[in-house]
């Protein structure tokens, strides 16, 4: 009996250590989002000192935080939906159709896969200016669809569609479905697990985007959350720590709740697609 517990001890220690490392930062953030600015520094405490719930109201008056939230949701939503849809179309075609220049086009697309946005951010700035798209959410929506994230999704879906047995398509063709019908009615549904993990990855990537809005967006009402979080400054550009932490908490919380609710699904999707 004792030996059994002893054997478990190192694992318990490991779990404890990991918990401290990965949970404490979030805990600290939530606690101090409920403190006044002056209480944040000093001996860390497990619970807030002043329970300043007003911080959570103040962040909406200091800047249009709700607007920033909606912007981010809009960008993430359109970006993810477009990304998955176009990637599925292209991934399917690359995997199962025969057309001239197929391999060339695929190889070309793969150059985008690994391309850091930092390489092209300067020309993109001038290009967006030319299109009159600066200081709008449009480039933020389109870049995740067509940039490296788009290429990544296309690649993943192609890899998946290569493994789908021919019979499915044959049967559909005999049923008289046209190619678009086959894609929509057969090929999209069978790819649901891959689609969902690709969508999750795309959503996380768009939600995280920082450099693009930093360069493209200037008006306060067009900010996305990452810009908003770094903009809780007082009159002289000094961070308003308590508000920044409250806003950060609010920016993380919904995603975290969704994630914790669907944790099993999310991680299973990742594990099972076996990103290869």
């Amino acid at each position: 009996m004792n030996r059994k517990y002893l054997k478990q001890a190192p694992y318990a220690l490991l779990v404890a250590l990991l918990t401290l490392l990965f949970v404490y930062p979030f805990w600290w953030m939530v606690v101090n989002s409920l403190n006044s600015s002056a209480e944040i520094f000093g001996v860390p405490r497990l619970l807030p000192t002043s329970w300043a719930f007003t911080n959570y109201l103040d962040i909406f008056t200091v800047q249009p935080f709700a607007r920033h939230y909606l912007n981010t949701l809009a960008v993430a939503f359109v970006g993810t939906a477009g990304n998955v849809l176009l990637a599925a179309l292209a991934g399917y075609a690359f995997a199962r159709m025969r057309f001239p220049l197929r391999n060339a086009a695929f190889l070309l697309l793969l150059t985008a896969l690994m391309m850091p946005i930092e390489v092209t951010i300067i020309p993109l700035f001038f290009q967006m200016r030319g299109w009159g798209a600066l200081d709008t959410l449009i480039p933020l929506m389109l870049l995740p669809i067509f940039g490296s994230q788009g290429a990544f999704s296309t690649f993943m879906l192609r890899q998946f569609y290569v493994t789908v047995p021919n019979e499915l398509e044959e049967a559909a063709r005999i049923d008289g479905l046209n190619p678009l019908g086959i894609f929509l009615k057969i090929m999209l549904p069978v790819a649901t697990p891959v689609l969902s993990s690709v969508a999750i990855l795309a959503f996380i990537a768009v939600w995280n985007t920082y450099l693009e809005p930093l360069v493209f967006i200037s008006s306060l009402e067009n900010f996305t959350l990452p810009l908003s979080l770094t903009n809780f400054n007082d009159t002289y550009g000094l961070p308003q720590w308590h508000l920044q932490l409250a806003a950060t908490t609010l920016s993380i919380l919904p995603i975290m709740v969704v994630y914790l609710l669907f944790q099993q699904k999310v991680t299973d999707a990742m594990v099972n697609t076996g990103l290869k």
Partner: peptide
């Protein structure tokens, strides 16, 4: 087949041209 295939990949490829290829050429020019 060629027409259908390209119809499927055109949206992605067109975006690729404008958001990756063109800027990449520009960065060399700049």
């Amino acid at each position: 087949d060629a027409i259908i295939g390209w119809a499927f990949i055109t949206p992605q490829m067109a975006g690729f041209v404008f958001f990756v290829l063109l800027p990449l050429v520009s960065v060399f020019l700049y």
